[in-house]
Design a protein around this nucleic acid. Structure first.
Length: 291
DNA sequence: CTCGATCCCTGGACGC
DNA sequence: TGCGTCCAGGGATCGA
């Protein structure tokens, strides 16, 4: 399940393996996850992949019509377009030899100028792909919140403490922070000793400060470990990540808390499984019942 | 505007 | 062995 560290891992891999290559042709299978399939087929052939970047959980393949691989001078930038890719739950984007057999659920093939193909595979098709001009891309990206690894303490605290929603929902909300998903939300709440159903506005300044620090720490360590491979995440080289070995609560319902030994519990918050230690992460006071 | 519930999709786990 | 059911979850959408 690609979240920020997994997408960062894939983007870095693709930056190494396909940046500087030219797209010769595009072939499409199922297209219900593509904004405008015809635009891909029409616009991409002939363009160079200048650079692969991450934005939240998105990958941005920066394209150009010239392709000296240097971004470089001149105009043209007004024309610069990007391929936006979201891996959803099960998406994979990786290059391979054009002659290699295709994995099941391969839906997009980009023929490259070096005999390889960049292929997109996604069984559940929760992902998204779109060809966007610079202008449309800029518009698209305004909907997202701060980058978790760059957000200042002040901005983080104010965006959380001004909200009444559950803290878990806020961490998952891409217009608040971009890139955090279920695993890293649970892991950072456990480290910060904050119950997932606490309200954003309930957090003290100190708690917000701690939460930001542990979230950044978890994300950085997960990037070093090349992400978490829970079910089927593989990076652009086809390798699994290692960070699942460091999980403290995610997927550990019924097992002992690493800090206090209490059984880890799971509740649904914001429609998602939320794992927490009932002792280390005390529940908010429930308003009803007093004897 | 804010928040929460529902739905999309497929493969894997599990019960009988 | 096979069939049915449930669950995983990012994000779009809708209603309160």
């Amino acid at each position: 399940m690609p979240e920020l560290p997994e997408v960062e891992t894939v983007a870095r891999g693709l930056q190494k393996s396909v940046a500087g290559r030219r797209i010769l042709s595009v072939r499409l299978g199922k297209t219900d996850f593509i904004d405008d399939p015809a635009a891909l087929e029409r616009q991409l052939p002939g363009l160079w992949i200048e650079k692969v970047e991450r934005y939240g959980k998105f990958m941005l393949l920066r394209l150009s019509a010239r392709g000296d691989g240097r971004g470089d001078s001149g105009n043209g930038d007004a024309e610069a377009a990007s391929l936006l890719v979201h891996l959803g739950m099960t998406g994979q984007l990786a290059p391979c030899g054009a002659a290699e057999p295709c994995a099941k659920h391969t839906h997009v093939w980009f023929e490259l100028d070096d005999g390889r193909e960049l292929r997109y595979t996604d069984p559940r098709r929760f992902g998204r792909m779109a060809y966007l001009t610079a202008e449309l891309l800029a518009e698209e990206l305004t909907a997202f919140g701060a980058e978790p690894l760059l957000v200042s303490a002040e901005e983080f605290a104010s965006s959380i403490r001004s909200r009444k929603a559950h803290i878990k929902a806020l961490l998952l909300n891409q217009s608040v922070l971009r890139g955090v998903g279920n695993i890293y939300a649970d892991e950072s709440l456990w480290r910060a000793k904050i119950h997932p159903m606490r309200r954003g506005a309930e957090l003290s300044k100190k708690q917000a400060q701690v939460l930001r620090r542990v979230l950044q720490d978890v994300l950085r360590k997960a990037i070093v470990a090349r992400g978490s491979s829970i079910s089927d995440f593989l990076d652009a080289e086809g390798e699994p990540g290692e960070y699942q070995r460091h999980h403290r609560v995610y997927g550990r319902e019924g097992k002992r808390c690493f800090r206090c030994g209490t059984a880890i519990r799971r509740v649904i918050v914001a429609g998602r499984s939320s794992h927490f230690c009932p002792k280390c992460q005390p529940a908010p006071r429930s308003r009803k019942r007093r004897s």
